[in-house]
Nucleic acid binder design. Structure first.
Lengths: 254, 254
DNA sequence: CAGTGGTCTAGACCACTGC
DNA sequence: CAGTGGTCTAGACCACTGA
């Protein structure tokens, strides 16, 4: 009600609503006043109300549902452990057990396989020439039936050719173990993490709300000789927190 | 010019402009047509043009500058190495050398120190009771003179009391070494990473553009007995990529 | 069927930029 | 001073939700 802050009208309204959300005047999942009510309350036009609501939506704090109303967004977060220190660094995040340990239901779509020329980003990370052919294996994983992450693994063609990696099926024993069987023993990896706003296609594939960034992980796995795999994972930031455990973490739970 | 996609008018305009940016019709730093020009080109009202531009701005793809125009956003990225595997896991990211190695100029503001009761998030991670007093040391670091990250370190009061940690100065030898001198030898840490859209205060402090998420790192450092420090770092996602090197990465360049 | 948010128009005045 | 984007108004019609 009281608008302490300064600046344009729509920004003050957004500040006021944000403060009320923080103070739990509107708690999680609560419905905000409707747009006509906010017009009345703040004495502004509908477009100005909508500018304010849009600001909060782009901060990921509210969601609007046509025909229903505008609601305070809730976030239920999953931890996903990406890295543990240890001899050999053989940790392969096991999606299924990670999710089940947190009382959620994991799921996954089919594996799709393609052969394509390496783009700059792929070639640089795999340390192969640009345009060299690579095998791409892609899978979409789910949590509680909803799409939750997109994973794309790239293999140099000579590694994947005439192996199960070119089949559109999951590798039973895990890809790290399978690569080791093929003579490519993983001895370490480099992870590069970034965050950005999604494009329209990712927004659709991952059912992302307005104001929800994605985190991207590029993991380059190496054998003693070369880079053997690049795994590119896209995480919706409202669903996942990523975890690395390094060194001795004995006194630490989970 | 051609609008292939479907959906509302402003979304098709955004799709068209996005495609032109991707195809380098408008390259990095290029100026987009002005709003009146876009009204003319697409035959829509100014508000519709602005809806389209706002969509792209919230994807972090364009920036508008009052009185000047609208421009394709460029991203110049820094790698910041957060973790390396190794005995003892004593890696402490050294801000200065990290930045200088990438031909940029590091800088930092003063250290500010406060004593405050632990909130839930702090207490849980430090494994101390809520409301227990902690020492907070905060510093803002810069790249090329611009604010680039905010770092807050929390120490249990009994660890920091009567030490240099309560002075508003940087610790010369680094905090890990200093804590070891105090008898708190770090043996490992747990990192939790997430991304979200910034609030208005962070947007101001870090001079963030519209559509730029932040990444948050919570690093809990442990001695053999207990958690000795929680470091909370906020990174603008348009400036930093975070890196972990695990295992033997000998064949890999940085 | 009343109420919700989604889309769109056609204006207006403003502060700021850069010539 | 002309051109830019920022803010704001007052309408309109639409599709959808849920009682």
């Amino acid at each position: 009600m009281v608008e302490r802050s300064q600046g344009p009208r729509y920004r003050r309204i957004a500040d006021d609503l944000r403060a009320k959300i923080d103070q739990k005047v509107y708690a999680a999942d609560d419905q905000l006043p409707s747009e006509p009510e906010l017009m009345e309350e703040y004495g502004v036009s509908r477009n100005t109300v909508r500018l304010a609501l849009n600001l909060l939506a782009n901060e990921g704090r509210i969601v609007s549902q046509p025909g229903r109303g505008t609601f305070v967004r809730t976030r239920t977060v999953l931890n996903f452990t990406l890295g543990v220190e240890g001899p050999g660094s053989e940790h392969d995040p096991e999606y299924r057990s990670e999710i089940e340990a947190q009382q959620r239901t994991p799921g996954w779509g089919p594996v799709t396989m393609r052969v394509l020329p390496a783009t700059t980003g792929i070639a640089d990370r795999l340390r192969i020439p640009i345009e060299d052919l690579v095998v791409l294996r892609q899978i979409t994983r789910q949590v509680d039936g909803e799409p939750a992450l997109i994973q794309r693994s790239y293999y140099p063609l000579d590694i994947a050719l005439n192996t199960a990696l070119t089949k559109q099926q999951e590798i039973e024993q895990g890809t790290i173990a399978y690569l080791a069987e093929l003579g490519h023993q993983q001895i370490g990896y480099r992870d590069q993490l970034l965050a950005r706003m999604p494009g329209p296609q990712e927004t659709e594939e991952l059912r992302l709300g307005q104001g929800v960034p994605v985190m991207e992980l590029f993991r380059t796995a190496n054998s003693a000789e070369r880079s053997i795999r690049l795994t590119h994972t896209i995480f919706p930031a409202d669903l996942f927190h990523l975890v690395y455990n390094v060194g001795d973490i004995s006194p630490q739970d989970r």
